[in-house]
Structure formats: structure tokens, C-alpha cells
């Protein structure tokens, strides 16, 4: 009495949904951070002064322990 298709569908759905949400969030964070850094460096200040320390993190969001 295994109902493998139902089980596989449930776990597959969970996987697809969480991956979609996670990738979307990561992408939003990345673009927002990049644009913010660009704006703060380029538009606000005249190019010269060094960017604020928070404006230059690495590309992934999870690397700030």
C-alpha cells in the first residue's frame, strides 16, 4: 500500500516552492544591494570619497557571521 506518486508530488512541491522563494529573495537582496552601492557611490557623493563600509559586501547575503 504505497502511494509513491502522492508522496513524491508533496515533497517535490515543497522543494520547488522553497527553492523559488529562496532564489527570489536572494536575487532581490543582491540587486538591491548592488544598486544601493552604485547609487551611494555614484550619485550622492562626488565620486572621490571612499564608499561607506556597509556598501561593499560580498555577493552572497549569508557571509556576515
Amino acid at each position: 500500500m504505497t502511494h509513491l506518486p502522492y508522496i513524491a508530488a508533496s515533497y517535490g512541491l515543497a522543494l520547488v516552492l522553497s527553492l523559488t522563494l529562496a532564489l527570489n529573495a536572494a536575487w532581490r537582496l543582491k540587486t538591491a544591494r548592488a544598486r544601493l552601492a552604485m547609487l551611494e557611490r555614484g550619485n550622492l557623493r562626488p565620486v572621490q570619497p571612499a564608499p561607506r563600509p556597509e556598501a561593499a559586501p560580498s555577493s552572497t547575503d549569508t557571509q556576515t557571521p
Binding site: 522563494l21 529573495a25 532581490r28 537582496l29 544598486r35 544601493l36 547609487l39 550622492l44 547575503d61
Partner: peptide, 27 residues
Amino acid sequence: LGFAALVLARTRAAVMESRIQALLSSP
């Protein structure tokens, strides 16, 4: 925890996006 992490990441992005909006509109 995953739910909390997603909401936190999205809210951080939203805060940054609103800042971008503010920066873009003021200059």
C-alpha cells in the same frame, strides 16, 4: 526558521529598495 529567514531577507531587500527609491527621487 526558513520562513523567518525568507521574511527577513525579503524585508531587508524591501528596506534597501525603499532607500533606492528615496535616493533616486531626491537627486
